[in-house]
């Protein structure tokens, strides 16, 4: 019987995997609690104490608990500690879904990050854009800055592809310091 598993790139050991070239470092950020919030985001803000707008594309989040805007009625809440808010529907008019296991998070550091962004998307990182959800390297991600790093949340099933894309882009001369 054919071994179809060979058709897929082996998933890296995310605890150890790192892309390091001059000016750019990429690694996995594990341990983040992530929740999708849909519905009345103002009501969500009143109940949770977190922002209803959240950061947009390439915006900057500063704290350990923050929100990232995905759509007109949807955001992603991120925290280093579990939220004290129940998942499921809330009578105030919003729903909360735990999605920590569904989204893989990469952190990108270094001055070559801007060059990497320009290769990944035509979206202007200097122009405000309400939603942090965009196509990056050919797949949908949630992209914003956090404490000096660029964070990318991507569906877990696409993480290996995006990792491969990032490795390939990092080898390009302008990014690897050979240009």
């Amino acid at each position: 019987m054919r071994d179809l598993a060979q058709k897929w790139t082996a998933m890296p050991d995310w605890h150890e995997a790192v892309i390091a070239v001059p000016g750019l470092t990429v690694r996995t950020r594990s341990g983040l609690e992530q929740y999708l919030v849909s519905g009345d985001l103002v009501a969500w803000s009143e109940v949770s104490g977190l922002a209803d707008r959240g950061v947009g594309a390439f915006g900057t989040a500063e704290d350990d608990r923050y929100t990232v805007r995905l759509g007109r009625d949807r955001l992603l809440a991120v925290s280093t500690a579990p939220f004290d808010i129940a998942t499921g529907w809330h009578e105030e008019g919003f729903g909360v879904t735990a999605t920590s296991a569904g989204l893989h998070v990469f952190e990108i550091e270094g001055p070559a990050g801007a060059e990497l962004i320009s290769r990944a998307t035509p979206v202007d990182p200097g122009a405000a854009s309400a939603s942090a959800s965009l196509v990056f390297g050919g797949v949908g991600v949630i992209a914003y800055h956090h404490q000096g790093t660029l964070r990318l949340h991507v569906e877990r099933g696409l993480a290996t592809y995006l990792w491969t894309w990032l490795k390939t882009a990092a080898r390009q001369p302008a990014l690897s310091g050979q240009g």
Partner: peptide, 17 residues
């Protein structure tokens, strides 16, 4: 590549639409 103005997000590449 053409940019389309999403009423919520502003200019985005046509491949996102």
């Amino acid at each position: 590549m053409q940019l389309f103005p999403c009423p919520f997000c502003g200019p985005r590449p046509e491949t996102e639409f």
